[in-house]
């Protein structure tokens, strides 16, 4: 693969496959979601939200299920 092509596919995988939802695990941070998806909350309600969404992985957000930056404060690491 050409280097430029490789960079594009790494930095923006949506360019290659835009009909799939994409989950990106951010080191020490949330899960970034783009593409076509539907989120159902823990009470069964549909959550309307524009992409991208950032879902909390560290367990400490006070705005669950979304990230509110708390991962930085607690120094979350895998």
């Amino acid at each position: 693969m050409e280097l430029t092509e490789k960079l594009i596919s790494q930095t923006n995988p949506l360019k290659m496959e835009n009909e799939k939802a994409l989950f990106q695990v951010i080191t020490g941070g949330p899960l970034k979601v783009t593409g076509p998806f539907q989120i159902t909350g823990s009470d069964g309600e549909i959550i309307e939200k524009e992409e991208p969404v950032y879902l909390c992985r560290c367990g400490k957000s006070s705005n669950k299920p979304f990230c509110n930056g708390a991962h930085k404060r607690i120094g979350f690491s895998e």
């Binding site: 009909e19 939802a21 989950f23 080191t27 998806f37 539907q38 159902t40 009470d43």
Partner: peptide, 23 residues
């Protein structure tokens, strides 16, 4: 569209046609 379900007091459960990029 890919379904993302937030499980109460538990994980994020995903079903559908999707892609995952790791850390």
């Amino acid at each position: 569209p890919t379904s993302i379900r937030i499980m109460k007091d538990g994980p994020i459960f995903v079903e559908g046609n999707f892609k995952i990029i790791g850390a």
